[in-house]
Design a protein around this nucleic acid. Sequence first.
DNA 1: TGAAATTAGTTGCATAACTAACTATATGCC
DNA 2: GGCATATAGTTAGTTATGCAACTAATTTCA
Lengths: 151, 151
Amino acid sequence: MPNNHFKRGELYNVINGMGTIAVARRMQKNFRNAGLEITIEQWSVLFHLWREDKLSQQELCNRTFRDKPSITRLIDNLEKLHLVKRIPSPTDRRINLITLTEAAQNLQQITIDIANQTMAEALVGVDKSEIEIVKNVFQRVYNNLTQVSGE
Amino acid sequence: MPNNHFKRGELYNVINGMGTIAVARRMQKNFRNAGLEITIEQWSVLFHLWREDKLSQQELCNRTFRDKPSITRLIDNLEKLHLVKRIPSPTDRRINLITLTEAAQNLQQITIDIANQTMAEALVGVDKSEIEIVKNVFQRVYNNLTQVSGE
DNA sequence: TGAAATTAGTTGCATAACTAACTATATGCC
DNA sequence: GGCATATAGTTAGTTATGCAACTAATTTCA
């Protein structure tokens, strides 16, 4: 019957629909309300640089799951905002190392607080064990689709 | 300490990162490999029309969690592909009802099969109870962010 | 009835995504 | 050493997303 037929298509729309979209919009809105001009995509790049500065663009691709042109343009825009700089790698002239400016360092605390607060709003009534399961499922999905047989 | 500090930001990147991106890419790739020219976003609109034809654009916004301009342009593109038509509502001249063409009807079976197969690939090693939890969590997240206090 | 408010849809502008094709540098190997 | 191959990053073209501002039609209600 149709209902059964639709089940997994339905699931795709769940995973890639309401939840993720709602969280992204709220996060963006909370940034804006705090007077922050950055996009959540830009923020997710900064996030990885706060953990480890001077990553190559390729490494940022790997960590943010984006392709190279996406990172090129995100870095372009972050440079325009004076939040990062491209510096040439001393050992490989193909590579740019992306480094945070002082302005970006000042954003870490406030934006991560907002991210935490946004996720807290999002996860009201969801308990820790469920969150762990969601994380595990997404990790497995990612592995399923990017291992050997995959990409 | 930093590690703890990053936890929820991390979670945001999980929900809105690897899993969803990997699934979307694979789905698009599987469509392409089957010779289908539509995008997954276009497909998600058709998906709701297969369930119920002749929805207004606003209703498609609600069901796909997109805003009105997004739907306007998706419908523009689907019209160019001769997969849907705008027909004026007989009762309210502000409203367009979106209706499937025969070409779109012929896509239902094959694309939903591909969606099912893609989700099957993605969910290897994930059991049904976990999938239920993911769906529930996303539903609650969505509700948390769109109820009263929210939007 | 008629003005104000609401709702449906479109347009303009900026950011971001993917693919494919490209340049430049580095590595592998004969 | 030098050619083939691989890797890092950029550019071009298409689609999609969000917000803000807009037009047109409908509803509310004084």
